[in-house]
Simulated assay, not measured.
Amino acid sequence: MAFLIFISFLVAQRLSELYVSSKNEKWLLANGAVQYGQKHYPVMVGMHTCFLVSVIVEYYLRGGTGMNIPVLVIFLALLAFKYWVIASLGTFWNTKIYRIPGMQPVTRGIYKVVKHPNYMIVVGEIALIPLVFHLYTTAIVFSILNAAMLYVRISEENRVWKMMNDK
């Protein structure tokens, strides 16, 4: 039962993030934003979808596992940081890469201290979510896949900011 509640929470949380992202996307486009990274975005979405499926499949293949409460607490604390990131970026937060020409990067909130805090959080989520239920294969495989995805994603974001700063 705990696993079902946890997965339901994750799905609801992810869907709410997509809702916020969609709402912010409309604002960004209305304010002249340009999208970048369209080629890798479907791969990223696919990876995150497969990640959730893998968590479910591994859990049931292992016959169910107990919950690791300390890891759950760390994951929930990580979510607090994620919401700080989302609040810091406000309408600029999105799952896609958008930039409004002439705008500088956000430097408030956690962005005063860390350049890519959202991606640090995603690294933690990909590792911790499966570990809440001792799903080591999913944690390892998707941490590696996520590292490759983030290499592409962060390189693209840095390229966009450099290109905009060079103008």
Rank of each mutant, 00 (worst) to 15 (best):
G66K: 10
M44S: 13
H48E: 08
G64D: 05
C50M: 14
N118E: 03
S88H: 07
P117T: 09
N68C: 11
I110P: 06
Q104W: 06
M120S: 12
I69G: 09
Y59F: 15
W84Y: 13
Y119E: 03
Y59V: 08
T95P: 08
I74L: 15
I56A: 14
N68I: 00
F75N: 01
I86K: 08
A87C: 10
Y59P: 00
V73M: 14
V113C: 10
K23T: 11
V34E: 15
G37Q: 04
P70F: 00
G63Q: 04
E25T: 10
K112R: 15
N94A: 04
R62F: 05
V85L: 10
W84G: 15
K23Q: 11
K82W: 10
V85I: 11
G109M: 01
V73N: 07
E25N: 00
T65C: 14
M103G: 09
Y83I: 09
L52E: 07
Q104G: 11
A33C: 06
V114N: 07
K115F: 00
I121G: 07
P101V: 08
L18G: 04
L89M: 14
I97C: 08
A77N: 12
L72A: 05
I74K: 06
G64A: 01
R62H: 10
N68L: 08
H116T: 06
V45N: 02
L18S: 02
L72N: 02
Y59W: 03
V114I: 15
K112F: 05
N31C: 02
I74E: 03
V106M: 10
V85E: 09
K23F: 08
Y19W: 10
V57W: 04
K39A: 13
R108T: 15
L76V: 09
P101L: 11
K39E: 13
V114P: 05
S54K: 05
N31P: 01
V53R: 06
V106H: 04
T95S: 15
A87D: 13
S21W: 01
I110Q: 00
F51M: 00
I86P: 04
R99F: 13
V53F: 11
V45A: 05
L52W: 05
C50H: 01
V55F: 02
A33D: 07
G90H: 12
G109Y: 01
V20Y: 07
N24E: 04
P117R: 06
V71H: 00
V53G: 10
W84L: 15
G37N: 02
G124T: 04
G64N: 02
P117W: 03
E25W: 05
L52M: 14
